[in-house]
Nucleic acid binder design. Structure first.
Lengths: 151, 151
DNA sequence: CTAGATGCAAACATTTTGCATGATT
DNA sequence: AATCATGCAAAATGTTTGCATCTAG
């Protein structure tokens, strides 16, 4: 069984990009922090732990590369910082996010909830959907529980 | 019949903000370009036409204010620039966008297509939805017509 | 009259780029 | 060996802030 990291490496190779230690370390960091939504700076600091000589510019260049190859998605939650999120293997659409306006947590929804909605968009607006970006703002489960305990 | 601009002015007043000529000019520009998705710089240049002494910082401060009052929404389509979009009067949710990956056009969908999806999120993830942000990437009607003509 | 708003310039934060050096295929 | 990738520093971009001045209420 081939591991996820190996497949990503092959993807890089396949697109005729060199497999440098810096790129490898960056991919590893992304895999190990799949739950998080790391900024370039975050990735830089984590990569630095295992490859201290790496420069921030290289991280930016690698993340751009991975975005191009659709291995990661670049997201922007409104603060001025770009974050990078691994795409599920084989997924044709980006996953959804739940952002809590109380605690700032970001949860992911892997299921695609937009099948019907995309059909409507395709027929009613004659727009061929290639990808989607859906984010909900609201109150998360955990904060609601906290609220209830107070009462 | 009260005009939209007057109601916005009252909202400003109501929140005890002063109604300066600069703020008025900024709101006018937003109303006159409701279809567009103007950046702060865009707004600045347009406001400058009618109030040449205005400074960019004031535009930023006004746009922040209007965002706070939910008169406009601050959006980020992935390029590093924040754009500002008037919210429909009385709308509790932000409207959706269709971004064409061919020509870069941004169309708006005012109808709320997410009623059912929000219900699922509320029950399945116990997340109370306050607002949503939905963007589709794909090929717009116009670009598809151009494609067909070529054949 | 006074709190709040403005314009300007400087500061900030993030991201991009130029270039000489270094490493991968 | 040749091409592509890297690190560093400088530059570019977009946004925010400090402060003296001004103005709407």
């Amino acid at each position: 069984m081939e591991s996820r990291i190996e497949r990503i490496k092959k993807q890089l190779h396949g697109a005729s990009y060199k497999l440098t230690p810096q790129r490898e370390a960056t991919v590893m960091v992304l895999l190990e922090n799949e739950e998080d939504h790391l900024s370039a700076e975050d990735v830089f600091l984590l990569v630095k732990e295992r490859a201290p000589e790496i420069g921030l510019a290289t991280v930016y260049r690698t993340l751009e590369l991975l975005t191009e190859l659709k291995i990661v998605d670049k997201i922007n939650f409104g603060d001025g910082v770009a974050r990078y999120d691994l795409r599920q293997e084989g997924a044709t659409r980006f996953h959804h996010h739940l952002i809590c306006i109380e605690c700032g947590s970001v949860d992911e929804i892997q299921e695609d909830l937009l099948g019907e909605v995309e059909k409507i968009v395709e027929t009613r607006f004659q727009f061929t959907v290639k990808d989607h970006w859906l984010t909900f703002h609201g109150i998360c489960k955990r904060c609601k529980q906290k609220e209830n305990k107070k009462k």
